[in-house]
């Protein structure tokens, strides 16, 4: 049974940027890119990997969608190199960090414009803002069911068999399509490294580009990207990274202080 899969990906600031290099622009309430790179959010890559594995078994098609600035093209090219079938770039020419409802509305409009789909896969959250809402809101926008924190997708008797991680173990979910699922990482969905040949080929593949106007969304509202929530402050918490070496005249006194500090931090949790 061929499955028509849509994977939504997001390009983010490299989460591995060392703390000492990390700056924020308090005015814009955004992180400063500086010398850091942009990467595809890891959970989105887990989602694409899950989709690729599903397609390898079921057949079908994978369309990757991303809503983002010009640089987002890189993330989509990489998805193509990983062997997604098609890529759609919806240009974000508005607020750099739009609220999740704006994003979900854009993605929903794009998916409707594409027509039929069986399953939409998204990463559980992004490594920058960690909002963790896009999948849920997208399901509501599309009016379909959703399953969160899935780490394995298989073809079931009557749709899909999903395995997902819970606080204490795992659950299996039987689901009929259409469906939105959010993907979490697992040893089985470590994103594949694209083959060099495919990387080079990806630069020659077509990339669909849509603007907000193409989608029939409320472009002004979506561009502002703050009708759901607004970031009113962004700051780097002052860290006293200076290690406090416990002092005291005797070893016993120092251990006493050490023990007290342990109680303080464990008790406050």
């Amino acid at each position: 049974m061929p499955v028509n899969i849509i994977v939504c990906v997001k390009q983010i600031l490299d989460p591995e940027i060392p703390s000492r290099d990390f700056r924020v622009d308090a005015e814009q309430r955004e992180a400063v890119r500086g010398a850091a790179n942009l990467v595809t959010n890891i959970f989105c890559e887990n989602a694409l990997e899950t989709a690729l594995q599903l397609k390898e078994k079921s057949g079908g098609k994978i369309t990757v969608i991303s809503y983002g600035a010009d640089s987002t093209e890189d993330a989509l090219r990489k998805a193509l190199a990983m062997k997604a079938d098609a890529a759609i770039h919806i240009l974000n020419d508005g607020q750099a960090h739009p609220d999740p409802l704006s994003v979900a509305q854009v993605l929903a409009a794009a998916i409707r414009k594409l027509g039929e789909f069986d399953v939409v896969m998204l990463g559980r959250e992004s490594g920058d803002w960690g909002v963790g809402q896009t999948a849920g809101l997208l399901a509501e926008e599309l009016g379909v069911a959703a399953v969160a924190f899935v780490d394995k997708v298989e073809i079931g008797a009557d749709g899909l068999q999903l395995k997902r991680q819970t606080d204490v173990g795992y659950e299996r979910v039987a689901a009929t399509m259409p469906l939105v699922i959010s993907i979490t990482n697992d040893e089985h969905n470590v994103p594949r490294i694209p083959k060099t040949r495919d990387v080079m080929m990806s630069f020659r593949q077509p990339l669909t580009k849509w603007t907000l106007e193409d989608l029939g969304v409320n472009a002004a509202e979506v561009r502002a990207g703050n009708h759901y929530y607004a970031v009113v402050d962004l700051f780097i918490p002052v860290q006293e990274l200076n290690c406090e070496f416990v002092d005291g005249d005797t070893l016993e006194a120092r251990v006493e202080k050490f023990a007290q500090r342990i109680i303080e931090v464990t008790g406050s949790m």
Binding site: D14, E16, P18, D21, N37
Partner: peptide, 12 residues
């Protein structure tokens, strides 16, 4: 992506 092979380094 980062121009160096040491994933996870805390240094600049």
């Amino acid at each position: 992506t980062r121009g160096h092979p040491f994933k996870g380094t805390q240094s600049t």
